[in-house]
């Protein structure tokens, strides 16, 4: 068994144990929210870390997934998993609207996705018949799985954990495939990738599609999690939050993205006791973590672990090739 597999199992066991260690319903609720954030961060990591696309529009797909799942559940009493799945697919379908803009580069593409997010947010704000407008959508039913109610925060937490783990496995396999290799190549030199036969615009569009599906699924989970949707949950600020998760955790690493998401969601909660200072502290943390370099917190931790191992065993730290999606 490889080191990374051991690490994965350890993390999974810790995550399974989390609601047992901290059974307080409020905290389990927050943990679920963090897992939803983890899925969002994975979707952003696919774009930024693998394909080198900075998207400021993931919040929009998140919202589309959330509203779709909620509406289907309220109006047609669709089962929980099906509603979430359709939410993800519809978010994916809406990402096809970005096809004309994928040929833009760098910050132009980022700004265009931001424009998309702002437009989607305005639709959520103003189309009352569809989204309930600024009042929002209320009375989203409790989720049921195969006819059984997913009772309580802990059960829902495990659903979120299962989905997040599934998304992790999916993206991890993508990273280590011909497709993932082409994305990484594209992010490092577009011309050379094209000359090797990579259809750049098609691959960027596929990347947006997959990321949008994942974000949409996260949105569906969120709808059942909060049972109330407000357009401001999906403003462009959300898109920026999602990008922030990846940068803080470390560009290019899926575990890093998960760590970043946990920080962005949990730290403001942990700091709640410090009252009005909590967001100030959070801002300072963002600045400091952004200063840790491209590999983010994941990079810092990896370095520390390597250093510790080297000290304990009195042998040089193993040097690996580039730190990429692992």
């Amino acid at each position: 068994m490889t080191h990374s597999n051991i690490a994965r199992i350890v993390v999974l066991v810790l995550l399974i144990a989390a609601p047992l260690v901290q059974p307080n319903a409020y905290w389990v609720h927050v943990f679920s929210l963090a897992l939803i954030g983890v899925i969002l961060a994975f979707s952003q990591q696919l774009l930024v870390g693998m394909a080198g696309i900075v998207s400021l529009g993931q919040g929009a797909f998140y919202g589309i997934g959330a509203y779709t799942a909620a509406s289907l559940s309220i109006a047609y009493k669709l089962p929980f998993l099906l509603a979430i799945l359709i939410g993800g697919l519809l978010a994916g379908a809406s990402s096809l609207l970005l096809v004309p803009i994928v040929r833009l580069k760098g910050s132009s593409l980022a700004v265009a996705t931001l424009g998309f997010a702002i437009i989607v947010h305005l639709v959520m704000m103003n189309e009352d018949w569809l989204t309930g407008g600024s009042i929002g959508l209320m009375d989203i039913p409790h989720p049921t799985l195969f006819g059984l109610p997913v009772g309580g925060e802990t059960a829902f937490y495990y659903v979120c954990l299962a989905v997040a783990a599934l998304v992790f496995l999916t993206f991890d396999r993508i990273a280590h495939s011909r497709f993932g290799r082409a994305l990484t190549a594209m992010s490092q030199d577009e011309e050379a990738a094209r000359a090797s036969g990579v259809a750049i615009s098609l691959y960027k569009s596929k990347c947006f599609l997959i990321a949008a599906i994942a974000s949409g699924i996260a949105g569906g989970l969120y709808a059942y999690h909060s049972q109330y949707l407000n357009p401001n949950d999906f403003s462009f600020q959300k898109s920026i939050d999602i990008l922030m998760m990846v940068i803080i955790g470390g560009i290019g690493s899926l575990p890093g993205a998960a760590l970043g998401a946990a920080i962005v969601v949990l730290v403001p909660e942990v700091l709640r006791s410090s009252g009005e200072f909590r967001l100030i502290l959070f801002g300072v943390m963002v600045i400091v973590l952004a200063g840790t370099g491209n590999r983010g917190l994941a990079g810092v931790i990896t370095d520390l672990v390597k250093y510790a191992i080297a000290r304990w065993w009195h042998k040089p730290a193993p040097t690996t090739a580039a730190a990429r999606v692992s």
Partner: peptide, 10 residues
Amino acid sequence: KLFREMTVLE
């Protein structure tokens, strides 16, 4: 125009 952060084999 190499993919500088990928390994030679990749």
